[in-house]
């Protein structure tokens, strides 16, 4: 119990109080402690990578051994992972090496493909969100149309009323207003709530009220 509960809670309390104070102390020792902590975080993250590697190997080798449906994807995953690791160890990571080529010409384009899917997904999600079934959804649709038009040159071109009176706001001005005033206000309201929530969760962790990070329920 001491090793699994009390010691971690004591460490969390001491570290939490020390780093809360550290933020307000501009002393050299305070900075040294912070840098020391940052170095340790990097070291722990490195060991975490080994755990991740072990998890992947175990998961996929189990799938291959049991011949679960789609087990050949696990073969490809393990083969790719091992070839990248061995490629980097044997051939190095310099430009033109196997590792570098695989990263630049296979991995990066595939990642870019995934990212580019986002454009299509935004279109379908927008279609669902902007269906004007209620007054609120109609308002959302109107705001979205104005912002979309205001972000492209067409918005300025079709703001014909500004030719009658240049003091009237164009679609670009209205779009900027929507983004800068109502949108910004609601974003900041959420951000304020989030900041206070984070602060209280941190306090609960320091005081040992919140123990989820120990991996044992509430």
């Amino acid at each position: 119990m001491f090793w699994k509960r009390q010691l971690p809670l004591a460490i969390a309390f001491i570290a939490g109080v020390v780093f809360a104070i550290q933020y307000f102390v501009p002393h050299r020792i305070s900075q040294t402690i912070f840098e020391w902590y940052t170095d340790w975080a990097i070291i722990i993250a490195t060991f975490g990578a080994i755990l991740g590697f072990y998890s992947i190997v175990r998961l996929h080798s189990n799938k291959i051994r049991r011949k679960v449906p789609g087990w050949f994807y696990s073969v490809i995953t393990l083969a790719c992972m091992l070839s990248m690791v061995l490629g980097a160890i044997i051939g190095g990571q310099e430009t033109g090496s196997f590792f570098s080529n695989m990263y630049n010409y296979v991995f990066v384009p595939i990642s870019a493909t995934m990212f580019s899917l986002l454009g299509f997904y935004i279109a379908s999600a927008s279609y669902r969100a902007f269906r004007a079934r209620t007054a609120k959804a109609t308002g959302l649709l109107l705001a979205a149309v104005i912002v979309m038009l205001g972000r492209v040159p067409l918005g300025q071109s079709i703001s014909f009323w500004t030719k009658w009176n240049p003091n009237l706001p164009s679609l670009v001005d209205i779009a900027n207003w929507i983004m800068d005033v109502p949108n910004m206000a609601s974003k900041r309201a959420i951000a304020l709530g989030v900041a206070l929530g984070m602060m209280l969760v941190s306090l609960k962790i320091i005081l040992g009220i919140e123990r989820t990070y120990l991996g044992g329920g509430d």
Binding site: I44, G48, A49, L51, G52, S55, T212, Y213, L214, G216
Partner: peptide, 19 residues
């Protein structure tokens, strides 16, 4: 997507199942 998170999540799920 983070090995440390995975470890904590494993512990959390294990404890929940026991509880």
């Amino acid at each position: 997507c983070d090995p440390i998170v995975m470890l904590v999540a494993q512990e959390s799920v294990k404890s929940a199942c026991i509880e």
